[in-house]
Design a protein around this nucleic acid. Sequence first.
DNA 1: CTGAAAGCGCTTACAG
DNA 2: CTGAAAGCGCTTACAG
Lengths: 350, 350
Amino acid sequence: MAKGATIHHVAKKAGVSTATVSHVLNNTRYVSTETRELVLQVVRELRYYPSAVARGLATQETKTVGIIFSDIANPFFTALFKGIERELAPLGYDLILENTGEHPEKQEHSLQVLLSKQVDGIILAPTGQQSPILQLLKENGTPLVLVDRSVQGMDLPLVEVNNRQAAFAATSHLIGDGHRRIGVILGLDTTTDRLAGYMQALEQNGLPVDESLFYRGNASLETGCSGAKALLAHAAPPTAIFTANNLMTLGALHALRELGLRCPEDVALIGFDDTDWASIFTPPLTVVQQPTGEIGRAAASLLHKLMSDKGSAEISLRQTFPAQLIVRGSCSPACLANYLKRQKDDRLTR
Amino acid sequence: MAKGATIHHVAKKAGVSTATVSHVLNNTRYVSTETRELVLQVVRELRYYPSAVARGLATQETKTVGIIFSDIANPFFTALFKGIERELAPLGYDLILENTGEHPEKQEHSLQVLLSKQVDGIILAPTGQQSPILQLLKENGTPLVLVDRSVQGMDLPLVEVNNRQAAFAATSHLIGDGHRRIGVILGLDTTTDRLAGYMQALEQNGLPVDESLFYRGNASLETGCSGAKALLAHAAPPTAIFTANNLMTLGALHALRELGLRCPEDVALIGFDDTDWASIFTPPLTVVQQPTGEIGRAAASLLHKLMSDKGSAEISLRQTFPAQLIVRGSCSPACLANYLKRQKDDRLTR
DNA sequence: CTGAAAGCGCTTACAG
DNA sequence: CTGAAAGCGCTTACAG
């Protein structure tokens, strides 16, 4: 660093003041055509690129927004990132991405980094609960919007899918296919509403809630795998499983493969989130799909309003998008027929 | 911005100079235990977090490295990111990620952003050729390492997989299975060596090179899809296809599905890069696998050496990692048997 | 053991 | 139409 030309170098070489250089570069006050051209010429000759850090210190604006995700390898988050980028890049914002790996302490560190780097705003997919820095950020009015997940006990702007409706749709679909014992594999966050939707579907259909059919872990392939194994080792195993995120769906698929079980013949599967490969998988995966790109754009757009300090009165601080059920092949009624047959066989052999 | 406490506030409240505050925070000169504790106490009370931008301006070091990828949705790059992060995070570096979408102009913009943000170093997976800012970065000695791809006409530190060997292994495997007409779907970058490996395998086995079996596009699902379709519409279609990156493999798979073709019965497929779902796909995908995490770590480690300004003599500026062939089910010799049978059928019906 | 002050590279009222 | 100078929030020789 420090090797490049500074504004002083160009001012000196052009025979003008640094104020003038600054003004032509930022188009911030009138400068005669000739001096303007001259300055621009020198800028080119010297290959001068203004220091964003000096500018940031002077203006107290960095034109960058920080993004904190729990898992950058999750396609859901990369799609979210693209949505955010699509909205903010044209507005001249740079994005700095922090990856927490679902560790609350790492998230706390990331928030601190963004705070000290003086980002203009933050988009956070939180993991864990309230925290000192989050509290500080809120108090000092740093524009911040939550995405995908909420933080218990903190009222912050939030944009997310309608988790309850999505889980309700998925579970209802399974019930419609005749399933009565439905396993759920859940992550840490986002859990409450998804579980509520699941239960609502059961209740609405007069089915009992059996908590031994719940498996909780974190949103990962490993959890999906061990969760499916655990559920299928149940004395009265579920005939269908609802996996509450795409990584867990993949994990459950790995488990089925290991166990030598077929889907949907032996067990039906319905996933949360779509992926590029879901439609050509064997079987094609039935999923409940989030409008991920839209969610990202909405979060970015909301953040932008907050950063622009528009009268907060008209801004809706909580946005919910509907999910869509995409029926493919992973949970045909076949599995139930199979299950009933199995039960009959069991009875006969006894 | 500007709402938080500054170093002056804590200095004043603690009754010391800003120098002292700075020194206790950075552990950079001796401070008596009592003043130290007092300062720390005030820091906590005021919830003071130093401004990284002011610090950056003063020290000419930002403790952040910039990363430029062409496609953040590509699992290869997210794995690379994780490798980099794993190496650099413990060293106290923050990462800022730029996404170019394979657009050279966007890359140029990203480089400029990183330059003006005064990052301490850059890791770049380049798309496109030489550029003014890249040239400037090189001249002014900004630590920069290329990853995955090289830049024509510029000698820059680079860590990548052994593309030629990888493509050679993939193609040889196909030839070993009896294939004689092998299609290749190629991206824009990385192409030369992969094609060279492909050709080397053909030549070494005395097979002719047929350029009508090459399909070029960019590294995307769409290219893989249209490429497979085009190749299979060939008058004398290939019996096997080598897709030069994971997104293109997925695209080719989509094409097969659309065309109602089976793999490997109708056409064999071998891909570049492994994915989480490849092993449980139907058929399980045979691929040539890069040690992606290692590549990321190596690039990060090399960059760190460059940033630490260690005697450049001992640093090896070009590192190559071997790829590994993982044989699964997508290119069994079955396809050739099938192909021969088809030819026979054709002959009979004529 | 600690402080006063210059300096990092910009922006921006204040003057003229 | 343009310049001199203060200030953004830190760090760090220089003194004592």
